[in-house]
Nucleic acid binder design. Sequence first.
RNA 1: GGGGUGGUAGUCUAGCCUGGUAUGAUGCUUGGUUCGGGACCAAGAGGUCGUGGGUUCAAAUCCCAUCCACCCCA
Length: 490
Amino acid sequence: MAMAEKEFKKDKNKDFSDWYNTVIYAADLVDNRYNVQGFIVHKPMAMRSFKKMYAIFEKELEKDGHQPSLFPTVIPEENFELEKKHAEGFVADVFWITERGSEKLKRKLALRPTSETAMYQMYSLWVRDHTDLPVKLYQSCTVFRNESETSPFLRGREFLWIEAHDAFATEKESKEQIAKDMGISARVLGERLALPFMFFDRPKWDTFPGAEHTYATDILLPDGKTLQVASTHLLGQNFAKAFNVKFKDAENNEHFVHQTCYGPGIWRIMAAVIAVHGDDRGLVMPPSIAPIDVVIVPIIKSKADPTAIVDKCRKLKDELIEAGLSVELDLSDKTPGFKYAQWEMKGVPVRVEIGEKEVAESRVTLAARDTKQRRQVSDKSVVQEIRKLGEEMAARLKKNADDYLVAHVKDAESIDEIKEILDKTRGYARVNIHSVEMDGKECADTLQFETKGGKVRGVRIGKDEKPSGDAKCVVCGKPAKHVVYIARQY
RNA sequence: GGGGUGGUAGUCUAGCCUGGUAUGAUGCUUGGUUCGGGACCAAGAGGUCGUGGGUUCAAAUCCCAUCCACCCCA
């Protein structure tokens, strides 16, 4: 709370990391004084946005035929180890429960780092024949991972996400689901949250442990590093075989199911929203997930009777709540300028100012968070005008994001050019590379070393980008089979 | 994995080298003046100086141990 009262003077573009590490506390999103590293307290300003974000995703998932569920937080060791590659990939990150009371457990229980091995255990019981398919369940929950380096919303030992786990009769359906999942990401991240995202087909060496293919959504942050905020994994029949998820088709033949899982990282999406939209005055929250839609600031002169102003504020608050908006009326004993700064810090999209002039002229003053520009609107059309202001703001955020992304993708034909792009442009370098199958890993490793952390994010999905016939790999010089994007990553 | 920084009031912080009554700001409380872009005056409350041990007449300060957090880099 106290941090929020302090004056905030940070230059986002000059020192992004410092800006980020200050604004999340100044905007009263989290408190990091809980004394376990990587486990953080989420305050109301964060939870309000999270709940809205969850609601948006859940609606999209349900439109696509998913149903809500909640599986246990603990996974017994024997389940966890069933899919070998999955277990190998995650074991270093798992927190284990080894005791209950003073008694040592005979088998360890994992705190779920992800829920495949909890859910598919049950899927194997539930799926008997083709009429049981598809299974499409999601859960909104937290998961636990023993990350060595932690940062609020970017990397935590406990973090919020959604995981959707689907099982299908056919490979075709499972592949179609990948596109549907990306459609959800595109609508939520691109349209509702105005984030500059790209879809990538991850290189073979960078797939989710246990998956055949990983399709990921990356967002470019202002420091030029990309953040993976969502991923869909084509699991094939790997887990189905490990967990014995089988069904009988219409001809009474047994088959393993084909599975996918989709995980939008609610925490990381928040990080992206903060990082992409925020400015030197604090958060700029897109209206779709703003913790508070509107703040009303009364302007009261000492010598005048405040009754009429306060009455008008209260009446407007009721009217806006009636219209479905979340509203804060700031009657605290602070000066207007102080209140403006406070609510701007918290990213409230629309501010209403009401003083004696507004009362006398039956109007109010609205101010948009992103431009800080004010406009006068009549009392009669306040709700409508606030909505309009929100829509205009959302459109501006979207345009900024799109422009930003376009300006931060550049082609490179040498490692030096890639370095230049990573360091100066602070964005993606688009290059020809030998291969994104396992035979290309050596090039990727070299590239990562030479460019100090530049990683192959993968082949862009939906763009059909292919190297020309005589194109050479930017690293090894052999004929290039793929066009990929390189960036440093979180 | 490697490195760095720090733990003193709700918050930020001075003091530590050179041991001797705990510094300032902010926030909070009360009263008053203010209020259209981070107001001001006055009074007041608020402290196991991370924890444990040692040295000493005396430890926030010196020594040893330990816990915790934060940041940066691969």
